[in-house]
Design a protein around this nucleic acid. Sequence first.
DNA 1: CCTTATATTTAGTGATCGCTACAAACTAAA
DNA 2: TTTAGTTTGTAGCGATCACTAAATATAAGG
Lengths: 205, 205
Amino acid sequence: MDKLVKKRRGGPRTFDRDQAIDIAMRLFWRHGYEGVSLNDLTAAIGIAPPSLYAAFGSKAGLYREALDRYSGLPRALSNLGETANLYEAVETLLDRAIDAVTDPDEERGCMISSGMIQCGEAHAALARELAERRSMMRDTIALKLEPWLDRNHAASLSRYLVTILQGLSVQARDGASREDLKQIASEVVAGVKARNLPDYKRGAP
Amino acid sequence: MDKLVKKRRGGPRTFDRDQAIDIAMRLFWRHGYEGVSLNDLTAAIGIAPPSLYAAFGSKAGLYREALDRYSGLPRALSNLGETANLYEAVETLLDRAIDAVTDPDEERGCMISSGMIQCGEAHAALARELAERRSMMRDTIALKLEPWLDRNHAASLSRYLVTILQGLSVQARDGASREDLKQIASEVVAGVKARNLPDYKRGAP
DNA sequence: CCTTATATTTAGTGATCGCTACAAACTAAA
DNA sequence: TTTAGTTTGTAGCGATCACTAAATATAAGG
């Protein structure tokens, strides 16, 4: 009884930094920045606080690295350039987004779209960084649309589409099924199709 | 010096309960549930913690009353029954929502749409209540659409519209201007109009 | 006047927050 | 083998968290 396991206390790093970021990412993704405590993080990763601080500097530092990791995931905004026309691009964007926010093997919703929407005064700067990342999402989408639309139309449609994406993330977190979200996407695509938007590279079908 | 102001310590209630809810509502609206501490609340209202607990039971209790107060505000979902057709209904809904989430005299965004999207495990039950309120928003919108659409189409379109509303709230919190949001709304309305939805009460124009 | 009831303040409670000083324990270089 | 340099766990920092026991002050009822 009470045979204490002697834990090692020195030498080279014993925990996997990448794996630690992955664990932190999923915690922050699900519970938000304020919803995860340092105790949650160290317990889930399996290290003591000083190890975390040596590796990441602060809770906010780890959060930023988790965001970067999340952004690098193969999700909605990657591989959209292969579509044949505007409607396919929109459809593909939404389909991938829906698959992403309802992936049964991952947390629901989007860490960027639904991250730090509200937070205490003390973390206002961090919240602004999140808003900046959302703004970059919009720019990325606009760029994907420019093969088929002039700059103004692309900007306008991309603002509309990120709004959809942010709403889809909320819906997913609230428990909407993949089919529910596909129905929303079909509403969007039907609207875009019906409008017959000016398409200066290929004529709209 | 140090002539302490003697504060009254008994007798009938001295603070305005309604006004306290108003103050709490704005704090929660801006910073979220986890972003507001009891110290923030008591300091802003101007009372000591026991007074708050006597009046509202708990932080969560005050939050719920703040949500009820918010829901009673004359915002997006009221007075939509006066429109002449489906497109006007959608247009009015979006216009009111945009006015609401960008009101310069109030906090930005929607307290329901953007409330408790992420939170710690400890407040999961409260978060579920918020999700339930968002679900009720969808039902309310569906009801407003049923004069012009059959039940299935109304359900589908309302799900699409709450998604837009939730996205608009994020956009507003991120600093989007009223004109930015009007542009999004025009994308939505253009799509709905162009689709010529089955309208079994009045023919689509 | 005195009693009762209630609302208030002070002054905390134990728990947890993000974070860190420190020394033990390890490797690698001298 | 010694030394230098890291990384680790322990232990605990001061601050803040949501919340409350107890005492005090007021108003209403008799």
